[in-house]
């Protein structure tokens, strides 16, 4: 079998034990053991924690592209007959494939264990899928900014904490004061939290689809920025 960039990227992310642990163990552990954890408002926060785990997992799975850049593997790859666009697209899909599988498996497990409705489960999976795509885009964009692994991860840890806190995954959105609510909107998890909230409250799906649109726009912006690679 020819080792295309897709296969190469897929194998690379599957060989990483941290990526495997975050993507394969944590989501299922959350659904099975910690889904009904108490929250500030007394509602079920498992959906939001699962969203955060999936977002972090997708980010880690897409991190290989940064290693390619830092270790100059990309130069060797591009010595072959492949364009940068093709390289990035294959990397994107190689990351999204296992993440999509995990999202659907998690939702299926949730349906089996917690008795979710099929429609609710499908919409929830779609929301997680959009959030994962945004996260992969963020990972691509992030790898363009930093050239050092340690600095990149250290700064991202801080940013992730801030994003998760302000984005509505830890603290409910209505608890955020006025100015922070505006700041919160510039983080993709805010829109994931809104979509989940709409689904949980059983409101009109208008807001849900607008949230998906926002995440799609975020993903587009991140991918457009992250699709830029300098070789020389």
């Amino acid at each position: 079998m020819n080792l295309t960039v897709f296969n190469y990227a897929l194998r690379r992310s599957l060989k990483n034990p941290i990526v495997l642990a975050v993507n394969l163990v944590l989501p299922f552990a959350i659904i099975l053991f910690a889904f009904d954890a108490p929250s500030i408002r007394g509602e079920n926060r498992g959906y939001y924690i699962l969203a955060m785990i999936l977002m972090f997992g997708a980010y880690l799975a897409a991190r290989g592209i940064r290693d390619d850049n830092m270790e100059r593997t990309v130069i060797r790859i591009l010595a072959g007959p492949i364009t940068m666009r093709s390289y990035l697209v294959q990397n994107f899909f190689s990351t999204m494939l296992p993440v999509t599988g995990i999202i659907f498996a998690s939702v299926a497990l949730g349906t089996a264990v917690h008795g979710w409705e099929i429609r609710f489960a499908a919409l929830l999976a779609l929301c997680y899928l959009f959030l994962a795509a945004t996260s992969v885009g963020l990972s691509f964009a992030w790898s363009c900014i930093f050239n050092n692994k340690e600095t990149s991860f250290a700064v991202f840890s801080v940013v992730l904490t801030m994003v998760a806190s302000l984005g509505g995954l830890f603290i409910p959105l209505e608890f955020l004061p006025g100015p922070l609510a505006y700041i919160s909107a510039i983080f993709p998890p805010h829109w994931a939290a809104r979509a989940i909230e709409t689904l949980l409250n059983g409101d009109d799906l208008h807001m849900y689809f607008l949230s998906l649109l926002a995440m799609a726009l975020f993903a587009t912006a991140f991918l457009l920025y992250g699709g830029r690679r300098r070789i020389l």
């Binding site: 909107a185 607008l210 649109l213 926002a214 726009l217 975020f218 587009t220 912006a221 457009l224 920025y225």
Partner: peptide, 12 residues
Amino acid sequence: FFLILALACMTL
């Protein structure tokens, strides 16, 4: 906000 996001995508 959507205008800003759209504009960001357009500019990128």
